[in-house]
Amino acid sequence: MTNELPAQDGAGDGVRPGDRVLDAGALRALAHPLRVRIYDILSQYGAQTASSLAERLGESSGSTSYHLRALAKHELIVEVDGRGSGRERWWERPVGGVSFANPEAIKTPSGRAATQIVMNEFFRLRQEQLMAFVDRGLGGEDPSWQEGTMISTATARLTPEQSKELTRKIMALIDDAVDKHRDQDGDDVRPVTIRADVFPLPGLEG
């Protein structure tokens, strides 16, 4: 699965050219709920320090610093060049797609367990964010943002090849938007999570 993280944020099953496929060691390093949350914040909001993460997560800076070092050991995150001091280090997630779909890793019980922890936490956070947005939409999210969002479910009858073609087209649109606006800044700019799910349903007998 890609932490699409596909082209910085999201999730899917294909591995595209340039995606980093996490090895078993990196998956195990990430397989902690707090580390997934830290990784997600760096993906969505950009560079952070141990102190800023601690404030956002309600943890101690010692705890977030420990988890940052564990992620950095496997190059899941890197220190920001030329920013911060010896006491206040800034960390960021490298640009590019990351895939959890490592066939070798899931051949072992520990690899499967690590992959499951990461995926479960990743999707739990995405669902939390979706429901929080729905609640804000009912109670006061800016109308201009409501008009620029989409929460939609559809069903189509496709062959495997048609499904592959559909996912390629969707990811091309997402990649284009991410690449074009990756470093955009301004008064009206906010992080926007882009979620695309395409998967087969079980048969009626399933």
Rank of each mutant, 00 (worst) to 15 (best):
M1T: 10
T2V: 10
N3M: 11
D9I: 14
D9M: 12
G14W: 09
R16N: 09
G18K: 06
G18F: 03
G18T: 07
A24F: 00
A26F: 04
L30A: 08
L34Y: 03
R35S: 12
V36M: 06
V36R: 06
I41H: 11
Q44V: 14
L53A: 05
E55Y: 02
L57V: 07
S61D: 15
G62Y: 08
S63C: 11
H67C: 05
R69Y: 04
E75R: 15
L76Y: 01
I77S: 01
V78I: 12
E79M: 07
E79H: 08
E79D: 06
G82E: 00
R83W: 05
R89Q: 10
W90H: 10
E92H: 04
G97H: 02
V98C: 03
A105H: 01
G111Q: 05
G111K: 12
R112L: 14
R112W: 09
A113D: 02
A114Q: 06
T115H: 11
Q116N: 14
Q116R: 15
N120R: 12
N120D: 14
F122Q: 05
L125W: 03
E128H: 11
Q129Y: 08
L130H: 09
M131W: 10
F133P: 02
D135L: 13
G137A: 15
E141V: 12
D142M: 04
W145F: 10
Q146D: 02
G148I: 02
T149G: 09
T153P: 02
T153K: 08
A154F: 09
T155H: 06
Q162G: 10
S163D: 05
K164Q: 15
K164W: 07
K164H: 15
L166Y: 02
L166I: 06
I170T: 07
I170E: 07
A172D: 03
A172W: 00
I174Y: 10
D176I: 03
A177P: 05
V178F: 08
H181R: 04
R182V: 09
Q184N: 06
D185G: 09
D187H: 12
R190N: 06
R195E: 12
A196V: 09
D197K: 09
V198A: 05
L201H: 07
G203E: 15
G203C: 10
